Simulated assay, not measured.
Amino acid sequence: MTNPVLVEVVRSGFVESVHRGALVITAPDGSVRFFAGDVERPVYPRSSNKPLQAVGMLRAGLTIGDKELALGCGSHNGEPGHVEGALSMLARTGLTEDALACPPAFPLHEPSMLAVAAAGKRRAAMNCSGKHAAMLSTCAQLGWSTTDYVAANHPLQELIRATIADLTCEPIETVGVDGCGAPLFAFSLTGLARSFGRLVTAIGGPERRVADAVRAYPWQVAGTGREDTVLMRNVDGLLSKGGAEGVHSFALPDGTALALKIDDGAARARLPLLLATLRHLGIDPGDEAEALAHNVVLGGGKPVGELRVTAGLFG
């Protein structure tokens, strides 16, 4: 194991804190091209696994449009278009918002949250509602129970588990419960990167359909000003999906892929590391993505420092 990835928080010339983590880059054939930190231990990929879950739904027989498929892979802002998309998906199978097992939430998008604050939280505004609506649609179309669709032993979840094991080329080490209530399967960062590479290089099939839908409709995946949307709009052919607790994965069109995890779950350390990797691979992430990285540390409302990836990470 090489030394862990380090993202330093520098304030007024002093290293205030350090975020440690792990990172792996896989080649188009799935072999490890570069790694730092422990990339073989199982981790929970959180929402980075949503494209893999969507492949499982398509393999099960889900009939869905590409725009809705992208929403099913998303961790959306809860903007009106996201909420309406989830509700429309449900309505076509005769289900309502009450069928969603994800918890009620306010939109992540501040203007959207302020617009509906008086009405309170709702399930369709929760950032995972698109995934849950797609899961319910799968069950309704196949005649499976919709009341217990998030149970780990439900036919849908068993099929998703088998799909993820296939795509990562790894056994599922542990089954947990994600923040949205759906089952969460643990596997390595290497497996996560490898699976993303397989999606973009697939010749047709559910794998390629998921990759193409996400890249065609990046706003559905996240929303206004969000990193996945910005990155996919600015880097041609990029497939990108972040997750909670400092996880992120992407794949370039040729199948080169990355997966990373910040050990303490700090979201602020994730994007600087991801952008540094893109630059290492010769990809310009664009000014909009660079601005989102929040590299500047503020003091009294003014810049007094920065977040920086350890010098020499890539040699």
Rank of each mutant, 00 (worst) to 15 (best):
V7P: 08
V9F: 09
R11P: 13
E16A: 01
S17G: 12
L23R: 05
L23W: 05
V24D: 01
T26F: 00
P28M: 14
F35Y: 14
G37Y: 06
V39F: 11
V43M: 14
R46H: 13
R46T: 12
K50F: 02
K50R: 04
P51C: 06
P51M: 05
V55I: 07
G56S: 01
G56Y: 05
M57K: 04
L58F: 15
L62A: 00
I64N: 10
G65K: 13
G65R: 11
K67A: 15
L71A: 12
N77P: 14
G78F: 12
E84D: 07
E84T: 14
A86K: 04
L87Q: 05
M89T: 08
L90A: 03
A91E: 10
T93A: 10
L95Y: 04
E97I: 08
C102A: 04
C102M: 06
A105P: 15
H109I: 08
P111C: 06
M113F: 00
M113V: 03
A119R: 15
G120I: 15
K121R: 15
R122H: 01
R123D: 09
R123A: 11
A124P: 05
M126G: 04
M126W: 07
G130M: 04
K131D: 10
A133D: 06
A133P: 13
M135S: 02
S137Y: 07
T138M: 11
T138W: 12
A140C: 02
A140K: 04
L142Y: 09
W144N: 00
T146A: 08
A151D: 11
N153P: 14
P155A: 05
E158L: 13
R161T: 07
R161W: 12
R161H: 09
T163A: 00
D166W: 08
G176P: 04
G176A: 15
G176M: 09
D178Q: 08
G179F: 04
G181T: 02
G181Q: 00
L184Y: 02
L184D: 14
F187Y: 12
L192I: 15
L192W: 15
R194K: 10
S195N: 02
F196Y: 04
G197T: 03
R198K: 14
L199N: 03
I203L: 15
G204A: 08
P206N: 11
P206M: 08
R208F: 05
D212P: 09
D212V: 06
A213S: 05
V214I: 06
R215P: 06
V221N: 02
V221L: 04
A222H: 14
T224F: 15
R226T: 06
E227Q: 12
D228H: 00
T229L: 06
T229Q: 12
V230M: 09
V230K: 11
D236L: 13
G237I: 05
G237M: 01
L238R: 01
L239T: 08
G242F: 08
G246Q: 13
V247G: 10
S249M: 10
L252R: 03
L258I: 03
I262W: 04
D263H: 11
D263Q: 05
D264Q: 05
G265S: 03
T277N: 02
L278H: 00
H280L: 09
L281R: 09
I283D: 15
D284W: 06
A293D: 01
A293C: 03
H294E: 13
N295K: 14
V297Q: 12
V297S: 12
G301C: 10
G301M: 09
K302W: 11
P303V: 13
V304C: 12
E306W: 06
R308H: 01
T310P: 08
A311S: 13
F314V: 03
